[in-house]
């Protein structure tokens, strides 16, 4: 019984969250006025000139996850 209640609560959260995303997408068509933050339509073609590029390795981090029970 407790399991069904837990599953019910999780389903409700997932259902409401998904429904909100879908309905927000549907309502987004009502808004068509937006400030533009980039000028991609106005680039001079092939004018990007990269004069310096460098990639410096900093550090690494390793996560080790046991396969049977997902505890580190």
């Amino acid at each position: 019984m407790f399991e069904f209640i837990c599953i019910g609560v999780v389903s409700l959260f997932c259902g409401v969250g998904t429904a909100y995303l879908i309905v927000s997408y549907m309502a987004s068509s009502l808004r068509s006025v937006h400030v533009k933050y980039e000028a991609g339509d106005y680039l001079v073609e092939n004018s990007l000139d990269v004069t310096y590029e460098n990639e410096v390795f900093r550090n690494k981090k390793v996560e080790k996850i046991a396969k049977n029970n997902n505890n580190n």
């Binding site: 004018s47 410096v56 981090k61 996850i65």
Partner: peptide, 18 residues
Amino acid sequence: YKYITHYYYDVYRKGTLK
């Protein structure tokens, strides 16, 4: 085990655009 390695880099770019 499953091993996930994260490699971190500093990347630099300089240049111009018209």
